[in-house]
Amino acid sequence: MNLKTLYRLRMMRRRHQLRGLLHRHELKPVSDRTAGIDPSDILVFTTLRNERIRLPWFLNYYRDMGVGHFLMIDNGSDDGSADYLHDQPDVSLWSTRASYRAANFGVSWINHLLRRHGTGHWVLVVDPDELFVYPYCDVRPLRALTDWLDGQGLPSFSAMLLDLYPKGPIGAVPYQEGQDPLEIACWFDSGNYMMRRNAKLHDLWIQGGPRSRAFFSDDPASAPALNKIPLVRWQRGYVYVSSTHALLPRRLNHVYEERGGEMASGCLLHTKFLPVLTQKVAEEMRRREHYAGSAEYAAYRQGLAGGLDLWTEQSERYLNWRQLDTLGLISRGNWL
C-alpha cells in the first residue's frame, strides 16, 4: 500500500467522520436510555421510517438473540413507530425529519451514534426488515459468536443480504403485526450470486439473487449490492462508508479468505418482500430519498403493478442456517 492511497483513505475516513458530526444536530433525542447500557452489551443500531408493523417481531428477534440495547433513529415516521419505540424499555430513540439522502442514506447519523455509544461494544447495524442469522444461531446466542470473534482477533463479521420472497404475488398473503415474516416470505435463490473485490476499499461487491434476475437482467451493473458487514467490534475512528456495505479503515472489510479457505460468515435474511412493500414503494417514489434516484423502487413499482411473483421452480425454501451452510451461502469457517 503506497502512502498516497493511505492518505486518500485517511482523508475519506475523516470526511465521513466529519459528516457524522455535521449531521448530528439533526438527531433529536426522544428517549435516551443509553445510561443503562452495560459495557458488555451487544447493541443494535437501526434507522427506520414507517416500520411500525415490523417492529414487535424485529425487537423480539434480537432480544432473544441476546442484544442488550437498541439505538434507533426514526426518520419522520407517521405510523406510530416512534410512540411504540418510545414505550420500549430497551430502546433509545432519536428522531429527525432531515433528508435521509443528504445524510448519506442515514449513514452519517448512524456513524455519529456509533461513535458516541458504540465504541467498545459489539454493534449490529441492521434495518427493520433484516434478520441476522449466523452459524449455530439455533443453539448459541450472539454473545457466543462475538466472544469467538474476540478470541480469533476478528473485528468484523460478514453477513450478506439474502432476499426472501413469498410464493405467489407479493401482497397476496397479509402480514400481521408480531408475525414471523418468514411464514410468508420463506423462499430464496440459492446459487446465482456474483461477487468481485473492490480494489479501493477491499470490500466485496456482491450482486445477484431474485432482484437481479427479476428487475435488473437488462442492466445487471445497477442491481443492488448484497454484501454487508453488519457486526463490528466498534472503535473510535471507525466509519461506515456506504450503508453497511463497507467500512473504514478497510481492514474491517477483510471478511473473506483469498487463498481458498473459508472464513466464518452469516446472512441477513431480507424480508423486504412483504405486503407492506406496496405502500413503501408508493411513498418512496414520491420522496425520492433512496439510492440511485430510487431506480430500484421504480423497478418494484412496475413489478408490483403486474402482480409480481419472484417465485420460480428453482426457489429454495428457507429452513435454517445449516441449509445455508450446505448451500455455500454462509460458512462455519473454523468455528467448531
Binding site: S158, V255, Y256
Partner: peptide, 17 residues
Amino acid sequence: RRLRGRPGLYMQSRLPR
C-alpha cells in the same frame, strides 16, 4: 474448511484470487 474450503465455491467469505 478454514484452510482449503469447499472447492469450486465462491461466496461472501471465500473468494479466492
